[in-house]
Design a protein around this nucleic acid. Sequence first.
DNA 1: AGGTACTGTGGGAGCGCTCCCACAAGTGAT
DNA 2: ATCACTTGTGGGAGCGCTCCCACAGTACCT
Lengths: 351, 351
Amino acid sequence: MTGHGTRGRSGGRPTLEEVAARAGVGRGTVSRVINGSPRVSEATRAAVEAAVAELGYVPNTAARALAANRTNAIALVVPEPETRFFAEPYFSGMLHGVGAELADTEMQLLLIFAGSARERQRLAQYLAAHRVDGVLLVSVHADDPLPDLLDQLEIPTVISGRRSAEETLPAVEADNFAGARSAVRHLVARGRTTIAHIAGRLEIYGAQCRVDGYRAGLEEAGHAVDEDLIVPGDFTEEGGRRAMTRLLEHHPDLDAVFAASDVMAAGARQALRALNRRIPEDVALIGFDDSAIARHMDPPLTSVRQPIEEMGRAMIDVLLAEIAERRPTGVRGAVHRQVLLPTELVERASS
Amino acid sequence: MTGHGTRGRSGGRPTLEEVAARAGVGRGTVSRVINGSPRVSEATRAAVEAAVAELGYVPNTAARALAANRTNAIALVVPEPETRFFAEPYFSGMLHGVGAELADTEMQLLLIFAGSARERQRLAQYLAAHRVDGVLLVSVHADDPLPDLLDQLEIPTVISGRRSAEETLPAVEADNFAGARSAVRHLVARGRTTIAHIAGRLEIYGAQCRVDGYRAGLEEAGHAVDEDLIVPGDFTEEGGRRAMTRLLEHHPDLDAVFAASDVMAAGARQALRALNRRIPEDVALIGFDDSAIARHMDPPLTSVRQPIEEMGRAMIDVLLAEIAERRPTGVRGAVHRQVLLPTELVERASS
DNA sequence: AGGTACTGTGGGAGCGCTCCCACAAGTGAT
DNA sequence: ATCACTTGTGGGAGCGCTCCCACAGTACCT
């Protein structure tokens, strides 16, 4: 006999009531102990805890959620058409951090995809049903209606990158500006004089910040910013290749390129190869993200690392705080938490 | 007024009861309509559906779960220490499939990490609390106690790769054997004569299957299998490099290598470079997984693609079937579903 | 002495649903 | 006419909790 017989009459899992009976107290008291209320005497608490341990009691989440009108769940919403985002350490790293931070909590993590119209529809249902206490929104675009919906429903939300400088929602992101600037500083320090930038999609605020950082890096070094050296890419490999090709046409003399993503840097590398530029001898190349691509590129790519795991942790921290304060996002004029995390330049052979 | 006033008295979300009142029927009837019971007349059904639409009724999940004693949730358990698994398209692709398949369902997806001892502890609690209707277990090792725990708790489970040929749990995986064989066939067809294999960790059944497939590919072509040409790696880049180096020491004449993963192939490539072997002129190289690394390698790596998204879908299909049949996994002697999905050889410049 | 405050506790009510029994009404065989 | 089903429906009971009110007990003022 291994103690299973200790269970309640029906053989099912023990309930609060049974724990109460066992401990010789009332239901309310057990509930208080379970929920860590301070208004319980030490002796009683000990007795209840003993009963809990003996019976192997585990609270029923559904009953809890129903009675307390909260779900103890948060959703990570992934606008999935962006498979670009989805692959690569970016996503998994963030998840890593999210998971780690959540491990200390009772909260559970729901993964929701909101790619197709149907999925978005379903998500709206989810949210309308208030099936989660909070939402983590990754890679939201400026024109995404989701934040507003969440706002209306008064569901605490954290996004993984501000949509603009005036972002009102709680947000967590890497310091794109400083990261880009550090890349340029590095190139300047290595004696590069004609430094181009392959930018990301500029409707994404983070890409914009990287451009600003690039500018700042040049300016603080006393270099003039040649707008022609800034070419927009679209975060794809093909875009990087095109941008690089164009840059070389107009500026055959350039000796360094800072791309706003590793994937674009990979494209740029192909274009450089095609036109017989050696990396880094002729042209130094730096990417952004420090993804697997960077490590496996030939030559290995210097890249700006984002503390992705930290970002995941920070998102959870902020979200839990928002939930705890029952401060619905978007309360007019409320100042929300926004976290900017430092980046790190990972130097490799490409620069 | 946009119709919000139609809501129930307290301004909260409408309940079953309110829908019933609105439709002029009883609670039970509304419940039947919501759950798609056939025992409702057409007229009544229409009336209820109208009321649901008017009130914007969304069932309360918690209440449902409590009353029906099911959760409408499944968990994807990730044994996270394996960051190797976690990064790369493998995970995200599978998630993709899982999400797509789940979109047709009421089921929600919980992501649970079971890396550290503490996380595993917490997971056990989760499961004990029967907070999910089923579990997806990815990359389980042969000695993992989790499957047994799930078995005891009678929670339907699907794993993402058999632990052995005698696997009793429902499982979904790529046809590792056929995939490996196709790689070898390809090499043989290209006239390669001395084909080595860098194997994965052999305690993983899938890696074992790949070895078998490698053997089969040689044998069917009438080549003898030289056991010396099979070197175990450990799925890491460093392991691939070491294995390759050793192979070249003993078999300087080899003209092809099939690695059991892209990451190991990347390591092998480095070793080949270091010893001045050209790819593919001197040595053809093939990997497994068709990951981003393969596409970005120089030269691009021929690789065996696993239909990862399909695998995700299949896992959900099987799991939902298991749940529907309320067939607890591990019923003695029961034949469980096992799905083997076809692989595809993606030919690139490395072979 | 009588207030006025706590602190700790028990237990009723109720969260929103599903399950199931009861029952009305219809159908067809006896 | 009676019985035996079937079909559709209403609503009670109850899932396991949290919330909150009531109340006993103790402490510290007036």
